[in-house]
Design a protein around this nucleic acid. Structure first.
Lengths: 349, 349
DNA sequence: TAAAGCGATGAAAACGTTTTCTAATTTTGT
DNA sequence: ACAAAATTAGAAAACGTTTTCATCGCTTTA
């Protein structure tokens, strides 16, 4: 292995000078700089990052914890994160934690072990107070999911109002019996979307029917949506519209409804959430609330790197000062729920 | 920060002894071991990984280069890789390279900078001889894609025979005019699948019609498949079956065919490749060649870690000895191409 | 003309481990 | 009871950097 001493010897200078040149510290004469670069090129020297980190007390690496790397929603956020950290001079160490607290802790312990300078968490359930232990000591940012009772900086969307908008849209379409497919998971977003659903109905003077609320498994998938729709639609007073808390659930619900002989959106309007792939494959294309995934990741990375840079400059860390960023969502109307359906088609009206 | 010296002082021993205890080196009395552990617990000591790596000259980390983390095919291989490295005591540093050579090199340079001990590449195009530069110096394993002319250990499936099987199945179904949707990308798998298609037709005495071969863009998607199907089916002597080199292309082809008024599989049989999600959402469920993605990743990780462990024990590195592992694929017959279609329905017969 | 200032450089310390070498003590064998 | 061997543990070197401090030779200033 070529070390800085080999380079120093080749260039006829000291290691200190080589280091100064390579780190653009200045205070080195033009001619020496040239000599050093020549030696570096000639020997093909690459600095040892371990040694650098050890001495500089920083790794320029951040941890990214993602519960499920195969989920395209997370994958998009991940893209935003890794592009941005790269641009800011940091590497991102992506860790697939499967949502298991044990693995999450194990990864976060890498902060204490000094393998990384900070961490971005892509999802953590409500009530994970243990996170604070880490956030108090190290810079941490949460993307998309967070716990409002735990003061950790985060970036997300306004899930509550997004849900209200979605439901409002269904109401404006003329629907009165509106169901929802939620989940038993413990994410804040899930709770807020359900609350938004309830509140919007209430405000419109429509009573909330508990039998129109279906709770899919924690780790729901396409099949969960299908099952949910079949359960909800089999009821006497079946809903004419369904607000699903994710696109996969919506996709499943559409297929489930179709298999029962319903036409979407004529017999049943369906609206999803996320707008991440697979919404425009088969007709009806899915009407949904679009989240700015890439930007969520980007913003999160910016916040974290900013805080690291400040800390480095000796400024206050303010890691736990609960900085909150809310990015705009957007209702995108496609086919699974859209205007101009003729409600007279429904015998109930 | 708590260092090993703090622990040593607390336990009333030397740093060397603490190190010995923590690394299970033996040669330390029962009582001292106990003292050390107590001190570690009391102070909450976590060893500094940078310092360890620097001294031990190993990082216990491997690089994983993936061109597109959002692609579920890669995501599954990734799962296999990261589960396995974890089990073997290594961390995996996942890097999204977007398939850009420049980024790939930048990441692989981390090997020279000693941030990682080896690398797994999930895809690299044919003719990337520059890779050998790295493979000669560091342990590298390729998963799924590789270049047969470059002696780097790899794990893959038998793409050639898998393609032949797929086409043979279509022939057995009675099809004579069989097209394929390939791609202009430069992956070995793409070439082999096309060659398998040609050879199987030839062996069956069916002339290969060049106008029945469609080349989708390098980074094809669902829409490419749709476009491809529409182009191929618009021809005079349209094929009655289509072999697609991936499931997304097959999915697109199905929708394209349907939009043109064809029924799949009655009017057109379609077979895909990979069997990774989205093959069983809408009917017709997609008939495809299933790849053991998770196992590919697992095997690749095992090979790499094994080679690292050997190297560590001073055994020959044999990094470039072109170890090759071929895992079994499987034809899974679903609906988009299946027996018992009545060929008399086709006016051409 | 001496003092001060400045630019360029090197020696050495520091970062936090692991490992080698050596020494002290205990155990074992005869 | 004594030499040899084994066990336990510490001091110090090593890993490859960066950074502090000191030095040296110049130029500038009064």
């Amino acid at each position: 292995m070529i070390t800085i001493l080999d380079v120093a010897k080749e260039a006829g200078v000291s290691a200190a000078t080589v280091s100064r040149v390579l780190n653009n510290k200045g205070g080195v004469s033009r001619i020496t700089v040239e000599l050093v670069y020549q030696a570096v090129d000639k020997l093909g020297y690459e600095p040892n990052i371990q040694a650098q980190s050890l001495r500089k007390k920083e790794t320029r690496t951040i941890l990214v914890l993602v519960p499920n790397i195969s989920n395209p929603y997370y994958a998009h956020i991940l893209s935003g994160v890794s592009d941005t950290t790269r641009a800011l001079g940091y590497s991102s160490f992506i860790c697939n934690t499967r949502g298991e607290t044990e693995q999450e802790r194990e990864v976060l312990d890498l902060l204490a072990k000094r393998r990384a300078d900070g961490a971005i968490l892509l999802a953590s359930e409500l009530g994970s107070n243990w996170l604070l232990e880490y956030a108090e000591k190290y810079p941490i940012v949460q993307c998309s999911e967070f716990d409002p009772n735990i003061p950790i900086p985060h970036v997300s969307i306004d899930n509550y109002n997004a849900a209200r908008e979605a439901v409002r849209f269904l109401i404006q379409l003329g629907h009165k019996r509106i169901g929802t497919i939620s989940s038993t998971n413990n994410y804040l977003s899930t709770h807020l979307r359900l609350k938004g659903y309830r509140d919007e109905l209430a405000e419109a003077g429509i009573p909330v029917m508990e039998h129109n609320i279906y709770y899919a498994d924690r780790d729901y998938n396409f099949k969960s949506g299908k099952k949910a729709a079949k359960a909800v639609l089999a009821q006497e007073n079946r809903p004419t519209a369904l607000f699903c808390i994710s696109d996969v659930l919506a996709q499943g619900a559409i297929v489930g409804a179709q298999e029962m002989g319903f036409d979407v959106p004529r017999d049943l309007a369906i609206i999803g959430f996320d707008d991440v792939e697979q919404t425009t494959i088969y007709h009806p294309y899915i009407t949904t609330i679009a989240q700015p995934c890439y930007e969520i990741g980007k913003k999160g990375a910016e916040m974290l790197c900013q805080s690291l840079l400040n800390q480095q400059d000796g400024k206050p860390a303010q890691s736990t000062s609960a900085h909150e960023v809310i990015l705009p969502h957007k209702l995108v109307v496609r086919e699974s729920a859209a205007k101009r359906i003729n409600l007279l088609d429904f015998p109930a009206y």
